[in-house]
Amino acid sequence: MNRRYIRPVAVALTAAAALLLTACGGDEGGSDKDKIAGADEAGAKESASPAAGKSKAPDGVDRPQMTFPSDVDLVFADTHVSDPEQAAALGDAQNFVRAIRYGIVEQDVNDAAYKFYSEFESQAQVYAKDQIRQRVDKGLTISGKMRFSRTKVTPAENKESAVVSFCADSTKLYSKEVKTKKVHHTEPSLSDFYSWQVLMKPSKNAEGLWRAQKVQVKEKARECR
């Protein structure tokens, strides 16, 4: 059985520049399908579970708590970003990635965390839900360590969005059967390396919060090995 924590959906991914072009163009380059239906903060709050735990961050944003089991470790390499807006985009891009895995360990395709860190009905939110659903439908969760490195933040010229890119190494992250607790170990391969790009935009109604609008994941990323 494939031990990878997640298999990205077969999204038509072109060059990395495609996402950057979207980030720099304001409304240009986006279709009506890409726009949020129902406004920013309200849509996300309505879709979140009212029972989800909250934690007050230094920026004053009430964020969903994500507590992982002891056998799951997500490690993000330290990345110094001097600009506070870019730093906020980076932090919430990482939270979006964490939220996908949290939905998997919680076995909840409607978990509040990924909805909180993605724009309502955006491509990123649909992607996150699909990744969680793939595991839930197979009765699988995750176990082990995943490392993220080579992080870069590329702001748009208008500073209204930013693309956060990084590499992911899942050579030590495995599939785990929910019922039996059996962990499926396999040998490391190129399939364990991914290149991520996440288009982040600031929330209109919650200062300090950034949400994922689009995500692009390249499988078998040799540049990340």
Rank of each mutant, 00 (worst) to 15 (best):
S82F: 09
E85T: 09
A93D: 00
T141A: 09
V126K: 13
Q213N: 13
K176P: 01
E41F: 13
K201R: 15
R133G: 07
C167G: 01
D73P: 00
K201C: 12
S31A: 08
A113D: 08
S149G: 09
K56Y: 03
Q134Y: 15
Q131V: 10
S143P: 11
S161A: 14
N110R: 09
I104M: 04
F116N: 06
E157N: 07
Q123R: 09
A162M: 04
P69K: 00
G30E: 13
V178S: 04
G53V: 02
A16L: 07
Q216S: 15
D73A: 06
Q86C: 06
A93S: 05
T151M: 15
N2Q: 11
D108K: 03
A17H: 01
V217E: 14
Q197I: 08
R98G: 02
K220P: 11
F193P: 09
K220W: 12
G208A: 08
M200N: 06
F68C: 05
K33F: 08
C24N: 13
A16R: 04
A12D: 14
G103H: 05
Y5W: 13
W196F: 14
A168K: 02
K181L: 12
Q107R: 05
T22P: 00
V75A: 03
M66G: 01
I104Q: 04
E85W: 02
Y5I: 10
S191W: 09
Q125D: 15
V105D: 00
S195I: 03
S203L: 06
G25C: 07
D62I: 01
Q213I: 04
G26M: 08
R225W: 10
K204E: 14
L173T: 11
N95E: 09
K129D: 05
E46S: 14
W210E: 04
R4M: 10
Q213G: 14
A57S: 12
D73H: 11
F120G: 02
K182L: 14
R150A: 15
A16G: 10
T154D: 13
V105N: 00
D169R: 05
S161C: 06
V136M: 07
R135G: 14
L173R: 05
Q86M: 10
A93Q: 01
F166V: 02
V164H: 04
L21S: 06
N158S: 06
A99D: 03
F68H: 03
A112G: 04
V217M: 05
A10Y: 14
S82E: 12
I6V: 11
V198N: 07
V136C: 11
T171Y: 01
Q197W: 09
F166C: 03
S47M: 14
F96T: 06
K115L: 10
K172F: 05
Y102M: 00
A156K: 00
S203K: 02
I36E: 08
V215I: 15
K176I: 01
G38Y: 01
R133Y: 13
Q107Y: 02
R225L: 13
Y194H: 12
A77T: 08
G30D: 13
Q125K: 10
Q123A: 14
S118L: 04
D62T: 01
F76P: 02
Y102G: 00
K201T: 12
G139A: 07
P84H: 02
S49W: 05
D73T: 07
Y174T: 04
Y102I: 00
P69C: 09
Y102W: 09
K35Y: 06
V163R: 03
P58Y: 07
V215F: 10
N95I: 02
E160N: 11
I100V: 13
R3K: 14
S47E: 15
S149H: 15
T171H: 06
V163K: 08
